[in-house]
């Protein structure tokens, strides 16, 4: 049975999530992939404030296909590991959750534990299926990056699995 989770993630919710739990996520998340991560970290380095406040928020590693006449195009996760070099500063700045696919570095796993955050994985390559779980989509930053811009998504019962929980337990530790 999947646990139903509503964003924003509270401390209590985060603590209740255990690696391996199947969840259905509802609420607001923001997409960000390679170039948006690079830019956000450059802005933090320069002491600038980010275009979206990250405190308490969840990032989805996703570059959606264009929407056409739909709410959003195909929108599955991209490989999380490529975001590893940029993730620790974002967690230090209050990011609470991430959704992607695949493994994270030990540095990121440690930072998830220290900052009491959570890392979810969702069905890689099931972009058509996942697009039906998105009820609204709006570009909120870095519009020039097209698919790599930051989109604010409202999702309903979006399926995911807890891959790294706030205690640092990790479903991929066996590799």
């Amino acid at each position: 049975m999947s646990k139903k989770i509503t964003m924003p993630l509270t401390e209590k919710t985060i603590e209740s999530l255990k690696a391996g739990d199947e969840v259905l996520l509802s609420g607001v998340i923001y997409t960000a992939r390679d170039q948006a991560h690079k830019r956000m970290c450059e802005m933090l380095d320069k002491g600038e404030s980010l275009p979206v406040p990250l405190a308490g928020e969840v990032l989805y590693y996703c570059g959606p296909a264009p929407r056409g006449k739909r709410i959003i195009g195909s929108c599955g996760p991209t490989t999380s590991g490529r975001m590893d070099p940029f993730t620790e500063p974002l967690l230090e700045n209050g990011l609470k959750g991430m959704i992607g696919k695949g493994r994270r570095s030990s540095g990121v796993a440690g930072s998830i534990r220290r900052n009491k955050a959570v890392y979810f994985v969702t069905a890689g390559g099931a972009g058509a299926y996942l697009s039906a779980k998105v009820v609204s989509c709006e570009c909120v930053a870095f519009e020039d990056l097209a698919a790599e811009a930051i989109y604010k998504l409202k999702i309903e019962e979006f399926p995911a699995i807890v891959a790294i929980d706030s205690k640092g337990d990790n479903i991929y530790d066996k590799y």
């Binding site: 056409g68 069905a123 099931a126």
Partner: peptide
């Protein structure tokens, strides 16, 4: 989910995966 995803993509004529 993957089998269902393929069915949805074919029926709605949208990309199977966003990385085309």
């Amino acid at each position: 989910v993957l089998v269902e995803n393929a069915g949805m993509a074919g029926k709605e004529k949208i990309a199977i995966c966003q990385d085309t």
